[in-house]
Simulated scan of single mutants.
Amino acid sequence: MENWEKINAVQRMQDYIGEHINEPITLYILAKAAGYSPWHSGRVFKELIGKTLFEYIRDLRLSEAAIKIRDEDIKIIDVALDFAFDSHEGFTRAFSKYFGMTPKYYCKNTPPVKLFIPYRIRDYYLTLQRGEGTMKQNSNASTVFVQVVDRPARKMILKRGIRATHYFEYCEEVGCDIWGIISSIKESLYEPIGVWLPENMRMSGTSIYAQGVEVPMDYAGEIPEGFDIIDLPSCKMMVFQGQPYEDDKFEDAIGELWDVMKTYNPEVYGFRWADEDAPRFQLMPMGYRGYIEARPVRQVNI
Rank of each mutant, 00 (worst) to 15 (best):
T206I: 12
G100F: 07
D228P: 06
Q129P: 04
G18F: 08
F281T: 11
G35T: 06
C235E: 03
R202F: 07
N140F: 13
I29M: 12
F250R: 12
F83A: 01
Y16L: 07
E2I: 13
F91W: 00
R202V: 10
K249M: 13
K97T: 13
A253I: 01
S63H: 00
P244F: 10
A65P: 01
G100Y: 06
L53P: 04
Y167V: 11
Y106E: 05
K136W: 13
R280Y: 03
R61L: 02
Y36K: 10
G205A: 09
C235T: 11
E199W: 10
V149Y: 08
D15K: 07
Y209M: 04
D247G: 03
M237W: 11
P296T: 03
P224D: 11
A80Q: 00
E276K: 12
P118L: 03
L257K: 02
F85A: 01
N8V: 09
I74V: 13
A253K: 00
F281M: 12
L189M: 15
P118S: 05
T92G: 07
L53Q: 14
N265V: 08
I25G: 00
E246M: 10
G161N: 01
G205S: 08
R58D: 13
R298A: 14
P152W: 07
V148L: 02
G161I: 05
P112M: 02
V79T: 09
K114G: 13
E267S: 15
Y105G: 08
C235M: 05
Y16T: 03
D86P: 00
R122N: 13
V146C: 10
P152S: 11
E72P: 01
Y105H: 14
R298D: 14
E64F: 08
D15C: 00
S63D: 03
F95M: 01
E293C: 09
N8C: 08
D277M: 12
I57H: 05
I76Y: 09
M286R: 14
W4K: 05
I67C: 04
Y124K: 15
W4V: 07
Y269L: 11
G133P: 06
E256D: 15
Y16N: 07
E191Q: 03
I185H: 03
E172A: 15
P192A: 01
G270A: 01
Y105N: 13
I208G: 06
Y119S: 10
S204Y: 12
Q243E: 11
D86K: 13
P198N: 01
